[in-house]
């Protein structure tokens, strides 16, 4: 099979056979990445514990494997936090807006919600995310 007649033609060609091969592989790679990271939820970080932080105190860790309802005495009143089947949520808070309750279940490691008036924040911790980010640069 002769693809090109002369050496000059080989060097002038914009697309060579190997280029087409690489381009197709790149398209397949991209499609595969979309399939894995966007449409497969099993990849998301598994959470194994719940951190509850009150004001500036050290966060207290609870395991997610036992279902439990925790009452935290916040700044303006009690907050009720429920742990159920590896998920966690606020079920009651003494604040006015109830944003923390409306946030719903925390399911994935790194999920966080907080009640600012009551100064209570909860987040799920997995094995991978010991910290969120390290800022740097210019």
């Amino acid at each position: 099979m002769v693809l090109y007649k002369s050496r000059l033609e080989v060097e002038m060609a914009i697309f060579k056979p190997a280029d087409v091969f690489i381009l197709l592989s790149a398209c397949f790679l991209t499609a595969w990445l979309y399939a894995v990271f966007w449409f497969d939820n099993a990849q998301q970080g598994e959470a194994d514990s719940l951190l509850i932080q009150l004001a500036d105190n050290e966060p207290v860790e609870y395991t997610l494997s036992k279902d439990k309802i925790i009452t935290i005495q916040g700044h303006i009143g009690p907050s009720l936090i429920e742990i159920k089947q590896g998920k966690a949520r606020f079920i009651h808070s003494s604040c006015r807006n109830q944003f923390c309750v409306f946030h719903g279940w925390l399911t994935v490691a790194g999920d966080t919600t907080a009640c600012l008036p009551n100064r209570v924040s909860i987040s799920l911790k997995g094995t991978l995310n010991d910290y969120d980010a390290i800022a740097g640069g210019q």
């Binding site: 790149a26 990271f37 966007w38 998301q44 970080g45 991978l128 969120d132 390290i134």
Partner: peptide, 23 residues
């Protein structure tokens, strides 16, 4: 080194798409 969070991988397909086009 900087953002060891599994959520970062959601960004990878978009970045690779742009990499292919700009490449």
């Amino acid at each position: 080194f900087f953002i060891p969070h599994p959520g970062l991988f959601k960004l990878l397909p978009i970045l690779i798409t742009f990499a292919v086009i700009l490449g």
